[in-house]
Design a protein around this nucleic acid. Structure first.
Lengths: 234, 234
DNA sequence: CAGGCTTCTGCCACTCAGTGGCATAACTGT
DNA sequence: ACAGTTATGCCACTGAGTGGCAGAAGCCTG
């Protein structure tokens, strides 16, 4: 009852809800629109409740009847309890894959640059107003909830594999015998994770631009990280 | 009944069981030895059963009474069903952390070299005869079982954080504001994952040495992976 | 080696995530 | 408005993981 909200009445950050607001998705069949609404209501309310009482402090049943949806329906929309809370990040990586599918590389550009570019492109596409806030809450939850962290990493891994597939298909890269494409991708992911962690730790409400520049900095630091020397304390 | 085995009678690859075989762990209090035996029996039988019928095809209850142990005891030994099947890898990374705690770096050596060295050191310590086979089965399971994959990645992430802590403590590295240590570590992990995947895919019974040389090759490929260029197919 | 002390184990009951099946309601196109 | 499709709700069920308590097993003194 606390954070209650029917699929129609969104919980926190809705998609400018009423009127003829939504630009592209407006003319979708009613069924689809409903599905989206429930989906968003679930994500929003889930983040609300989880942030308030912790991931483990909220049962699916509670979430479901806060949104007024049956548990069965929940599992037709998301694959797990973790899944709903990780949606914001997944949105980004899905966009990344689409970007990767479209972009043409600069002549003579490196693979890392290409991938990096795709990620910036994806970031630019997260136009939805509440996205930053959603990611923020999602990440903070992930940091304090092992099972969410694990789910996030697994998703990340799946996405990487998908990306490698695209690289093989579109750019004729050998992703089976040659470790380099995979390494390049993992490096980018590592840099992104670093940037994301920094960004999440920041107080206030960070912006997408800040995240992008953090990523830029991290990627720039990669070559240096390979030659960094160490001396024992002793 | 199939793969049955009491904690005393190991299932597959035991620790040269009887006699005065075990060198260091011999003089442990009986209680500890028993615990170890149950632990190993659980891992062995779990890998047997999971390999045979799939991770999801075996319930914990089945596993538990194959080893003749109560479910309650299982959960005092391992944190989850996934955990027991990932034990072999965890053994390696635990050794890695210990290695990292001990080693002194070469003068002027790079961080990556240090970390790499620790990993070889850890690998060398996996003297237990059946280790390679256990890892192999564990990895193959992980590849076909999402929840195991996720668990493995999460463990890997925790280990990385622990390693960063050591780096900060022992080598006065700034692991908070500077992305480079984390990046170096992630690069090593990425290389290792590649090597492990190759190694796992190989037919027959690969050896630790092969894994080590795969890792060496992957690490060597890193600088190249950063400068790899791409051209669109078109 | 008897005794109490500590620690591990087994059992039981319970919560909660996730699934399958089926009847029903809600949208779809014509 | 009607038939056909598709989402939804409900119900019962499996299986992972936990808490609590009683009793057994290893441990450590004298």
């Amino acid at each position: 009852m606390t954070t209650a909200s029917s699929p129609a009445t969104e919980s926190t950050e809705s998609t400018a809800s009423t009127g003829a607001a939504a630009p592209a998705e407006a003319r979708l069949p009613l069924r689809e629109r409903k599905k989206r609404r429930t989906r968003q209501a679930l994500v929003g309310t889930a983040l609300d409740l989880f942030t308030e009482r912790g991931f483990d402090g909220v049962t699916l049943d509670e979430l479901c009847d806060a949104v007024d949806v049956s548990k069965r329906t929940f599992f037709r929309t998301f694959t797990s309890k973790e899944d709903v809370a990780m949606e914001p990040t997944q949105e980004l990586w899905t966009a990344f894959l689409e970007e990767l599918e479209r972009r043409r590389p600069e002549r003579g550009g490196t693979l890392v640059e290409l991938l990096e570019g795709c990620l910036y492109g994806a970031l630019d596409r997260m136009t939805d107003d509440g996205w930053a806030r959603r990611v923020l809450r999602s990440r903070r939850l992930a940091e304090e909830t092992p099972s969410m962290g694990a789910h996030g990493l697994a998703f990340c891994d799946r996405t990487s594999r998908a990306a490698l597939d695209v690289l093989r298909r579109r750019f004729r890269l050998d992703t089976a015998g040659d470790p380099r494409p995979r390494l390049a991708l993992d490096v980018l992911v590592a840099a992104f994770h670093w940037a994301l962690a920094e960004w999440t730790a920041q107080p206030g409400s960070p912006t997408r631009a800040q995240l992008a520049s953090g990523l830029r900095a991290a990627v720039a630091a990669v070559p240096d990280s390979l030659t960094l020397t160490v001396t024992a304390r002793d």
